[in-house]
Design a binder for these strands. Structure first.
Length: 552
RNA sequence: UGGGUCGUCGCCAAGCGGUAAGGCACGGGGUUUUGAUCUCCGCAUACCAAGGUUCGAAUCCUUGCGACCCAGCCA
């Protein structure tokens, strides 16, 4: 890829890290981590976090671990873990170490024992419902559980028996003993362990008690020597708990948690639960449907890792709730593809053109540059013959104002080829245009015609050697900018998010395209060869349209 | 009514007491065998509001207003 990585602009996290390095905090080391829960596919929102965490590490010669936050086996799976590794790698990042929160289950358990011994945690047997009542509300303090002062020895015994599997799910929990009157509800004796007789994707049946996120995350960070623990805004209220646990445990290191705003992209959603719903209810064709904001979906659509990285840099990192317009992402995609995608011609809705003054037995081998601004990319062979297809939309019987394509009696340039003139329009009984009879000017190959100006240029393919193809025209998945705030986000689904064109014709040079290869089909958009292609038919997904200032 | 945050151009975003970067979008001109690209020009006397401090405030203080998050044995 020839494009340089984006210009880095200042953001508060970069500045904080730079200041820490300057002050030799953590001995000048920078260690971050990307900690996804393997309960779904990664999406564009994760890309922001990935670019931030790996980026900060890279910029400071630091390290960045991939850590699966796998403390809730009921929702997690190996399939998701695999997809996450694939996607992070595809985005262009290499983790220093790969860890799992489950790697720390034994240490987490021992730390919990320590907490109990210190009198900082206790076993409670309140039901979930009772617990909720005791917790109070946002404006009223909670009240102490009757078990809050259970003797240490008793809690220790109960905790060991929880681990041993003596109890049923929900029968007991381990709670941190903090402050039931805290204005921060997260500090009202939060649960740190619960009983779940569930098979874990990695630890199997070794455990029937699983640690909660708040308790696990900070210790995992500390054990890995993370210096900067970056997470999203909704965890701001959890930071006091993060710090409380590490302070009580006197861990060797105490990472600094810093929160930033999660990505909100217009006309899409980044809620894993809702993305999963789109998949399971078949509103899309899987997690990698090109309309999905998942990395797998973007990849299949033909979006490049560089475009996503550029996007993540451009949107910035702040603590402000911000909505990013889809145009920003599209611009990043176009900018990268314009620079790097070879050009080709594809006719979406073919209209047969017979060039009457062109010899029937002649086939000219034209060579058209793969990129108009980059001759070094070479050229491809495109054959010209008596019968060609042009885009039905490029001809108009009754042209709209300023139409500069083909009209009856008018002239137009065939891209990379000759200027043709339309002499006759053949229509069927119903008035449909079935064919155009044209003539070409032999003196216009590679040069302008004499004595007149032809401003229109249209794409074409030869009938004989063009290839049949299916083009999938994707559009935004939702027709409302903030589908997530709708009472029913499914109602905001765009009914026209996919248009399948089955009778397209593409130039012969595309026969050797590989799955995933991206092209600019001149004048129609950027496309990517899909894995559904077979020897009978090529399948291309539209990544994004070309900018269009005419139809506006 | 508790706690935690945030408010700079239509959308992002720099700015960190010395007189409003940049990107996207938008409008206009030029080049062009893609109505693409490229290129040139325009686009906040103004920083949520009102007071105050200061020679000087988007930056400091005060008071309002608005928005977002938190009461899972989810993360």
């Amino acid at each position: 890829m020839s494009n340089a990585e984006p210009q880095l602009t200042a953001n508060f996290i970069r500045q904080m890290v730079a200041a820490d390095v300057q002050e030799n905090k953590h001995h000048g080391k920078v260690a971050t981590r990307f900690p996804p829960e393997p309960n779904g596919y990664l999406h564009i929102g994760h890309a922001k976090s990935i670019c931030l965490n790996f980026g900060i590490a890279l910029e400071n010669n630091g390290t960045c671990n991939l850590r699966f936050d796998d403390t809730n086996p009921e929702k997690e799976s190996l399939e998701f873990m695999q997809s996450i590794e694939t996607d992070v790698s595809w985005l262009g990042f290499a983790w220093t170490n790969k860890f799992h929160a489950s790697d720390y289950f034994e240490q987490l358990y021992q730390y919990a024992v320590q907490l109990i011994e210190q009198g900082d945690a206790y076993i409670d047997d309140l039901t979930a419902e009772q617990m909720r009542l005791y917790r109070g509300t946002l404006t009223e303090a909670g009240k102490d559980s009757p078990n809050r002062h259970r003797p240490v020895a008793e809690s220790l015994d109960l905790f060991a028996r929880m681990r041993a599997g003596e109890f049923t799910d929900g029968q007991y929990v381990l709670r941190a003993k903090i402050d039931m009157a805290s204005p921060n509800v997260n500090m009202r004796d939060p649960i740190i362990y619960r009983i779940r007789h569930v098979h874990h994707q990695r630890t199997g049946d070794a455990w029937c008690i699983y640690p909660m996120y708040d308790y696990t995350h900070c210790i995992s960070d500390a054990l890995e020597g993370i210096t900067h623990s970056l997470c999203t805004l909704e965890f701001e209220d959890h930071r006091p708990l993060y710090d409380w646990v590490l302070d009580k445990l006197q861990t060797p290191t105490h990472p600094q948690q810093t929160e930033f705003a999660r990505l909100q992209l217009e006309y899409t959603i980044v809620s894993k639960r809702k993305l999963a719903q789109l998949v399971t209810e078949n509103h899309v064709n899987g997690w990698d449907d090109p309309r999905m904001p998942t990395l797998a979906g973007l990849r299949r659509a033909g979006v490049t890792p560089a475009a996503i990285r550029d996007f993540c840099e451009r949107i910035g990192v702040t603590k402000k709730d911000a909505w990013i317009e889809m145009a920003v992402l599209e611009n990043c995609i176009r900018e990268d593809l314009n620079e790097n995608a070879p050009r080709a011609m594809a006719v979406l809705k073919p209209l047969r053109v017979v060039i009457e003054n062109y010899p029937a037995d002649l086939v000219e081998q034209l060579h058209i540059p793969c990129h108009p601004q980059k001759p070094e990319l070479g050229s491809r062979q495109v054959n010209f013959a008596k019968e060609i297809f042009i885009e039905a939309d490029d001809f108009a019987l009754i042209p709209p104002p300023k139409f500069k394509r083909l009209i009856e009696g008018g002239e137009v340039r065939l891209r990379g080829s000759y200027v043709i003139k339309c002499n006759q329009v053949i229509q069927d009984e119903e008035g449909n245009i079935s064919e155009l009879r044209c003539s070409y000017d032999p003196n216009t190959l590679g040069k302008n015609p004499e004595g007149r100006k032809v401003s229109g240029v249209i794409h074409w393919v030869a009938v004989a050697d063009s290839l049949p193809a299916q083009l999938r025209l994707y559009d935004r998945l939702f027709c409302l900018p903030h589908p997530d705030s709708e009472e029913n986000f499914l109602a905001a689904l765009n009914p026209d998010s996919l248009e399948i064109l089955d009778d397209c014709r593409v130039e012969a040079s595309l026969a050797t395209a590989q799955v995933g290869d991206g092209f600019q089909f001149e004048r129609t958009g950027y496309f990517c060869l899909d894995e559904d292609s077979n020897c009978e038919k090529l399948v291309f997904n539209r990544t994004v349209t070309l900018r269009d200032t005419w139809t506006k």
